[in-house]
Structures are given as structure tokens and as C-alpha cells.
Design a protein around this nucleic acid. Sequence first.
DNA 1: CTGTTAGCGCTTTCAC
DNA 2: GTGAAAGCGCTAACAG
Lengths: 333, 333
Amino acid sequence: MDEKKISMVDIAKLSGVSIATVSRVLNKNGRYSKETEERVLEVIRQHDYKVNVNAKGLRTKRTQTIGVIVPDITNEFFSQIVRAIERYVVPEGYTVFVCDSNEDEETEGIHISSLAAKGVDGIIYISTRGDVKKIYENYKIPVVYIDRRPKNAGTLVISDNEMGGFLATQELIKKGCRHILMVKDTKPYSTVRHRYKGYAGALEKYGLPLDPELVVETEVSYAAARQATQEALVAHPEIDGVFCNNDMMALGALHAIREAKRKVPRDIKLVGFDGVSLTEICDPPMTTIRQNTDEFGKKSVEILLRRIHKKQEPNVHDEVVVVPVELVRRQTT
Amino acid sequence: MDEKKISMVDIAKLSGVSIATVSRVLNKNGRYSKETEERVLEVIRQHDYKVNVNAKGLRTKRTQTIGVIVPDITNEFFSQIVRAIERYVVPEGYTVFVCDSNEDEETEGIHISSLAAKGVDGIIYISTRGDVKKIYENYKIPVVYIDRRPKNAGTLVISDNEMGGFLATQELIKKGCRHILMVKDTKPYSTVRHRYKGYAGALEKYGLPLDPELVVETEVSYAAARQATQEALVAHPEIDGVFCNNDMMALGALHAIREAKRKVPRDIKLVGFDGVSLTEICDPPMTTIRQNTDEFGKKSVEILLRRIHKKQEPNVHDEVVVVPVELVRRQTT
DNA sequence: CTGTTAGCGCTTTCAC
DNA sequence: GTGAAAGCGCTAACAG
């Protein structure tokens, strides 16, 4: 009834071999006969035996486990990344610890040291910090940073944010906008800086002046962006295009524009950033810059696993993978 | 430079005591003097020592780890639950494995056996299955089911879905609706059944007929709900209220109604279900039934930890916690 | 091809 | 109050 969990010793006894042989079969290390293999495997199957990952990890210093730290799992953009990471890592036999930092540096620290204590084989990290401590130096755990680019990050996978800002702004310009408002996040993330750079670059390329009054900073939320846009629209009635730092903010802008009795896209055109699902289902569906979250997952997993398996000396040289973004043209431009 | 990871032996040596003592102060097991404690703790702090959870788990059969299985992490409702679970479990020293089943039964199975192999102390499980295998019987891992109620689930934490259906329908009736369309999910989940029951119950209570033609089943997506609503509106122009199985579907309905040139809430009123963020930011903001995801996390963690700590004999009696829902009145009613 | 054996880092009797 | 020592379940020499 309450038989205790079956272990390798049991399997060994039941199949009449030594535990070493069982271990070899399990790990496909060779040096056993076809028949032994079959017998052992059969016994394992019959008893639904599973190796104890703890014990294994204790010996091998591998846990088949990775940690993922995200700022906010309820943000669809981040949950998409988590999902993509899972998609690529589970088939390789890994399980993922998901840690939500709540955009809080201290919480991040707690998560990191807890992940270290659990002996994760690697970490994928979207950092809230501007400057990251050297996790690899401290814990010898390979880390891949994604999305944001903090100082001291070694390996990272990021979107081509500058190109995104450029494409968004260019789209507005090509559709006839001459006075383009950019609604920026106040946070000093690299993503924000790069998108702004793209915005400025596009203006320059098309010979439009960069009016600092048309660049407003605001907290990254629907409500804040809505209000900021509303105020900007009052102060600068000439605005005929808006580029927002992300989709949620763009939705705020959309509603502010509507409130101001201006028509989208007739009077004012609008582009968001990220490509989350709300851009498809808002009214009208929104033009946006889509980030390739699947590729984020794929690339970061690929690099992390390579490092874990030491095919590449960890953090010997920094590696930066830039994932292309894509303009998704819909009905706000 | 490449000093290997510090272990309990090192701490013991450095503080001039035995490893047994170090272990005792670490676990606050008593039987050591105040001074020893301070000395050991100081050394631990200086060297930023962290216990090896693997080794500890090997001895104690506890990993300070729980698994959470969700159907789709990119669905805000589920990611909110994950977040709430984390919020309550991390302070207790646990880390959570998040597993996305992609609404697929086979994937769920893979996750479960992988979680078992990792030796999680417990599992919180939103199952896609109608009937669940007895995880506790097979693996001796305590499980708390949440949100959905599959057959054979022991302990579970669910919303008062029937009450939700009732409240939604009652709200529509009280605002004057007489022909209320219900857009249901086709899946046979308990949540769907109960919401329907509440809908029917409200109609009955207020003496309105239950017209089977006004109950349509559709895939759970924005697009499907939009189309279903559109068709229903054509077939039944008398419809003056719509209750949807979830918010995403309600948004589809909202747009179908607008497409049909009917005004919300003037001509047709609308209530969703879940209370995700889109209900606040759609236009007009939507009346909905809010599920208390925080309470989901809190209660399920509470019960799970109680079982893990054997304060309660696991699954001896089934326990059902029903979390109240709440009508959030906004501008679609 | 197969078995023996020494630990991995920790908890927990059992002595003192 | 403290230490010695026996494993937890597994891998990886090493010896045959």
C-alpha cells in the first residue's frame, strides 16, 4: 500500500544486475549488452521508476533546471517569452523556475540567490537593474540576458529596438505625418533609449525637425499614457502622429485621441510597440512593431544550453544577438 | 580565482565547530549556545554561503519547490494566478516550477512526471482534463486543483462560478434586458457548466423563459465569439443583453454588436467574466464578473503547504474552497 | 561488458 | 551544548 519510492538499488536487484549497470543504461553510457539493456528498461517500465533528480544533481552538479526571471508575468509580452522559453527547453529535458521580480531590484536579488541555492544550470534574465552584478562571477551560473541591456551584462538577446523606432516613425512619416509625438517610458532601460534613437533617426533621415516638446515621458501604463497624450494634444494641436513605447500605452493614446474628437487614422496616426494581442482586438486594430518573442526564447535557450554544456567557454566573450522586429501595418496608420 | 563553491564543511572549519552544529543553527534546531550561533551565522554571512538544496532534499525528501501547471501562461487570468501563487509561496522559501500545458493533455502528463522526478513537494494544477489520474496515489505528491473541477480531483479551490453567472444575468435583467444571449465555451469544463447554471437560475428567479436558441456555444476566442454573436444578432434581433463566458469573448461580442450598428449599453447590454485588464481599457469599459485571482493563489498555497507539512493528512478528505466572485459594474450595463 | 566503491552536501541519530 | 558517523540515491572512476 504505502510502499516507499522505488530506487536504483531496487531496479538493480529486480533485474539482477548492479546499480552501476542500471545507471549506465539510464544514461546511455554504453558498455552494456543489448539484453541487459532490455531487461533493465523493462523492469524500469514495469515499476514506473524515475531517477531522483536531487541525488543525480548532487553528484553531477547538474539539475536539468533553469531559472527565468521576468519583471511581470502578467504582462503578455513577458509571458509570451516565458512560454517560448519553455517550448524550447522542455524537449531538452529541462524544467523552468519562473520568478516574477515585480520590477523590483531587491526581489530580483532574492530570486537569484534562491535559484543559485537550488543549483539551476542556467538563468535567463530580464533585468530591472540598470547595472547587474556579476552572477557568473559570483555563482558560476551561466546567464543570458534578454530584452533589456543592463550594464555588465555579458551575453544578451535583444530586439532591434532602434530599427523598431525607426520603422514606426518612418511609417508615420510616409503616411503624411509631420508632427510626431513620441510617448516614452520614463525608465532608463536600453529598450526605451534605442526606440527613441530610431525615432530621432527617422525624423532626421526625412528632414523633419526633432522637437523636444513632442517627446513626453511618462510612467508605463495605459492611464499615464492616456493622460500624457491628452495634455500633449492640447499643448500641440498640430500633432498628427503618435509613436508609443509600447502597445498598452498606445491604447491609452488612442483613447485620448478619440476623447479629443480627433479621428484615427484620418487626423492622427498611431503606432505601438511589442505586438501583443490587444493590438489586434482594439478598435481600430493598431499598427505596431512586433517583437519576435518566439525567437527570443529560441535564441536564449540555444545559447544558454550551449554554455551549460560547455561547448562554449562561459562568458569568455560577450555575445549579442539582435532579433529583427517587424512592422505590422493595421488600421491606425 | 576559481575557488569551488563553499559548503557546510568549510563553514564548520572556519567557525571552529562541527558540521552538525552548523546544520543545527541553520535549521534553528536548538541545542547550541548563543555564541556559537552568532559565530556561525557571521561566517555564513561573510562567505555568502547558501545551503545546497539538492543535498538537503536528498536527505529530507523535501525540495522547497512546488510545481504549477497552467493551460496557457499568456492568458492574463492564468498568469495572474501564477503571480499570486508566487507571492504567497516565495516568502515561505519555496520556488515554483511553472509548466504550460498548452491546453494539451499529453503535455500535462509529461509535466507531471517531470515534476515528480524533480521531487517537488506539491503541485497546484489547473487541469485541462475532464478526469484526472490520481497523482497523489501514484506519486505521493499533494495536489491542489484550482479553477476547474475535474473528476477525481481531491482538494480544490474554485470560484463561485454559478454565483457569477447569476450575478451577471441578474445585472442584465435589472437593467431591463429581457432577451439575454449567453455565449458559452464549447469545452466541458466545470466553470462553463456552473456559469450557465447561474444564468439559467437568474432567468428563472426573475420569471424569464430560458430560450435554448439564445445559448450559443463557441470556441473560446475573440474571433469565434465575435462571429457567434454576430450570427445570433441576425437570427434574434430581439436580443437586448449578452453574457459571455469570459472577457475576451465579451470583447468579441462588443465589436459584433457595434458592427450591427447597435449601441452599448443603450440597445444591448453586456457582461463578461474574469475581470482581466482589457475590461478596464476597452471602449466602453466593460461590466464583468471579477474572479479573485489573489485569493486563488493565497488559498491554494495555504492548503498545499498545510498538506506538505503534514499538518493535515493528505487527501484524506476532499476539501473544496469556493472563492466569491464580484460584479464590477462599468459602462456596458 | 559488468561490479565495487568512494563520495556529492546535507540531516540526524547516538554518544559524550 | 557538541561531535562522529551513517546514510539519502546517484555517478564515475577503477578493477576485473
